[in-house]
Design a protein around this nucleic acid. Structure first.
Length: 774
DNA sequence: ACATGCAAAATTTTT
DNA sequence: TTTTGCATGT
């Protein structure tokens, strides 16, 4: 056990060995946060005071959960499967499966991902004849998820004004539809689990006594509902919550993360142990300096300053390009140099603020013959062919799954059109049943087609009954006609590959979950028959409902419920991204958004597109809170780098098919000048031919004082001089008339801040934007 | 019922 | 620029 604690620094050591009282660990970037969390769990268990099953550890992503399990199983010899370690959604799912009846759910309820949810909402709106212009499906989705995040059921929302009433009505109708179809969306997963504990004292008491230690990773990313869920599990004892987080790395406020939870937690749990992990083991000194100085511009901070024993290392390379392609080719060149000096390509990351920026970088990397991998984009389980196959699987599992029905009833095409589907939906509504159940009521040609589909599903169901999960998946793919459909098309070869991969995924799943050893996994049975209208909160005045007493553990083991591998696999597909399944090409340059880079580290990091309007993003630049989040995002980006950091911007950039002119990001000015090394192109020699002509045409020479810039513009053989002065009116071919309010820089860097009459205020590069005196 | 074409929107994203 | 939903024509 002692070697467990070896090599921990003093801060880490005291965090790992804290007594069972609430503690907040402020863990800076690269300070060994995950290590502390894992060692803490291992230490608790090896001390012999608690069992592995007494611990609940919750993380934010599957990746983090997987890593925790993996590293734990290396330190300790125990069955990590029985431990409650996972994401909020994963653990809530587990709890709801175990107590499905108390939660008012069918045993094999399915999970809707965001796309499924939107489809379900669209279908609902259509069936209710709601005008999509007035009530857009996307807005309803937002409304619903927002309400659930605030743990508000329809009956609890104030619907006094007409407009709000309609939203609440739709929210309620949506809930009923989900309930009828036996599906839950992501936010429902959390809220339902919260309600389950809230309304069921026996169950609550059971979990409160069971989990002696609760550990929360990435606490700054938790939402209010997630925090409330944790609080409910912790109960009144005010102890045993070990929260690890970094307020400076809170970058998910836009989707409900509430970093204020850290302060609330400190207050509400009367936290006596606040430990700061400030020793950084990742980055060289200059990089860390850059990060520290940048983040010090934020006002809302708990306060923390990273230090390192490492050397200063290299200076941060900064580069200002005239165009986005010039920026990208500079990046490609630097990447090539790094690889030439022996750096492994997967130790190089190119980061950007938004996905649209990857294209140009990819283009230049291809030109340079450098292999890369782009993160983000479609996940494995979100690909259409995979979703189709899963939909067939869902239908076999549950004939009443209307979402799955909708997806594949006419895929591959069976001649069933929107008209027939509308009729079927109407019938289903009349009889208040599922689409599948409504089929016998359909007459005529459409009825015949529907019946053929029903027969197909029944046939697949019967033929696969005795099969193992992977065999079943394989059979579904071929019997449904999906295989044939894609096989005929040469452009669908990748889809066929993915369907094969799905079979592999099922095989892997079966082995991982132990289904190859036993036919079905047993879960805790259920004990009360409480009416789920209470849970749904349609009538929610009497808050606390009494559930029946829980049976003893012995009773539970004697009489377990069974969960089928098929529905378990389906939730797995909804909750796991499955990106280890496709496109895993290793040891190439890594391209991703800054968000996606969180938690990762690389020897060399490029942060690109550092322009006002892009990073910080224009939608965030106005509001102070949003700007501070952008700054934290920049902080996250910088702290990914171990040894080399490259920052770049482009004065002009193609975005959404239009060229935009930007100035460099304010974040450059928030970095200490001593760590920055600027290499801005001023000579012709390092430019490509095309860029050279474009620059030659526009810029020759300039002089300036505080309120005037004079530019000599050389166009072919003509030479014109323009004088730009603060207060003068100018004309721009796209933005129209405006007035100069600020001037900056010289030569090719000269910029003017122009207040346009119709297009707001913009910074323009004078060498590029063709401003005419008005 | 299905193909084709046009208009509108397009941060960040995990579950 | 690219995607995607919706409308029109066959």
């Amino acid at each position: 056990m002692s070697d467990l604690l070896d090599n921990l620094n003093l801060e880490q050591y005291s965090a790992v060995t804290l007594p069972n009282e609430s503690a907040l660990i402020l863990a800076g970037a690269g300070s060994g946060k995950t290590r502390v969390l894992i060692t803490r769990i291992a230490w608790l268990i090896s001390c012999g005071e608690v069992n592995a099953t007494d611990i609940l550890a919750v993380t934010f992503t599957n990746k983090a959960a997987r890593e925790m399990l993996l590293r734990l199983s290396k330190i300790l010899t125990l069955n990590t499967n029985s431990m409650w370690i996972g994401t909020f959604h994963g653990l809530c799912n587990r709890m709801l499966r175990a107590h499905y009846r108390d939660a008012g759910l069918p045993q094999d309820f399915q999970i809707l991902d965001s796309a499924d949810q939107l489809m379900a909402i669209r279908r609902l709106m259509k069936s209710l004849n709601i005008d999509d212009e007035k009530y857009p499906a996307k807005s309803l989705q937002y409304f619903i998820n927002n309400a659930k995040e605030q743990s508000l059921r329809p009956a609890e929302i104030d619907a006094s004004d007409n407009h709000n009433r309609k939203w609440v009505e739709l929210y309620s109708a949506y809930n009923q539809q989900c309930q009828r179809e036996g599906v839950v969306d992501f936010s429902e997963l959390l809220l339902r689990s919260y309600n389950l504990l809230q309304y069921n004292p026996a169950l609550r008491a059971y979990y409160q006594t069971r989990f002696k230690h609760i550990l929360v990773d990435e606490f700054q990313d938790t939402s209010k509902l997630q925090y409330a869920w944790i609080k409910l599990l912790a109960g009144e004892r005010n102890g045993g919550i070990f929260a690890v987080g970094d307020d400076d790395q809170s970058i998910y406020a836009f989707r409900g993360a509430h970093a204020g939870n850290m302060l609330d937690f400190e207050r509400e749990f009367n936290v006596q142990h606040l430990i700061k992990l400030e020793q950084n083991y990742r980055s060289h000194g200059n990089i860390l300096d850059a990060a520290n100085v940048l983040i010090s511009h934020n006002s809302k901070r708990l306060g923390k300053n990273l230090r390192t024993n490492a050397c200063h290392g290299k200076l941060v390379q900064a580069y200002g390009a005239a165009t986005d392609s010039q920026e990208a080719s500079w990046i490609a060149g630097k990447v090539q140099t790094l690889i030439d000096t022996g750096l492994s390509p997967d130790e190089i990351a190119v980061l950007y603020r938004s996905n649209a920026q990857s294209r140009i970088v990819e283009h230049m990397l291809v030109n340079a013959g450098i292999e890369y991998r782009v993160y983000g984009g479609l996940r494995f389980f979100e690909r259409q062919e995979v979703k189709h196959a899963l939909a067939y699987l869902r239908l076999i599992n549950n004939f009443n799954d209307d979402i799955a029905f909708d997806r594949v009833v006419n895929f591959p095409a069976r001649g069933i059109g929107t008209r027939s589907l509308e009729q079927l939906a109407n019938t289903a509504r009349t009889y208040n049943c599922s689409m599948m159940q409504a089929i016998p009521y359909m007459l005529g040609r459409a009825g015949q087609l529907f019946n053929e589909f029903l027969a197909l599903i029944e046939r697949i169901s019967n033929n696969t009954r005795a099969m193992s999960l992977p065999e079943m998946v394989e059979a579904v793919i071929s019997l449904s006609g999906l295989e044939k459909f894609y096989a005929n098309k040469p452009e669908s070869q990748e889809r066929i590959e993915n369907l094969r991969e799905l079979v592999n995924a099922a095989s892997a799943f079966v082995v991982e979950e132990g289904y190859n050893l036993m036919p079905a996994r047993s879960i805790l049975p259920v004990c009360s028959t409480e009416n789920y209208a209470v849970i749904l909160g349609e009538n929610n005045n009497n808050k606390e409902k009494t559930g029946a007493a829980l049976p003893s553990i012995e009773e539970l083991q004697k009489n377990p419920n069974q969960i089928t591998p098929i529905s378990d696999f389906l939730s797995h597909a909804s909750l796991e991204p499955g990106d280890n399944l496709a496109n895993t090409r290793k040891n190439v340059v890594q391209l991703m958004t800054v968000h996606a880079a969180k938690g990762l580290e690389f020897v060399a990091v490029f942060i690109t597109g550092l322009e006002e309007g892009l990073f910080p993003h224009e939608n965030s630049a106005i509001k102070k809170d949003a700007l501070e989040e952008e700054r934290r995002l920049m902080y996250v980006a910088i702290t990914r780098a171990k040894e080399s950091l490259y920052l770049s911007f482009a004065q002009s950039r193609m975005l959404h098919g239009k060229t935009r002119y930007n100035v460099r990001s304010r974040f450059f000015d928030e970095l200490p000048t001593r760590v920055l090394q600027w290499t801005t192109p001023r000579t012709k020699s390092n430019l490509s031919k095309r860029q050279r002509t474009s620059l030659d045409n526009n810029y020759a020479d300039a002089y300036f004082n505080d309120n005037t810039i004079a530019l000599k513009l050389v166009n072919q053989n003509q030479c014109t001089q323009s004088v730009f002065q603060i207060g003068k009116s100018v004309f721009h071919s796209k933005f129209g008339e405006g007035k100069i309010t600020e001037l900056e820089g010289d030569g090719s860097d000269a910029k003017a801040r122009v207040e346009f009459k119709r297009h707001g205020t913009k910074w323009l590069a004078l060498a590029i934007a063709k401003l005419q005196p008005a």
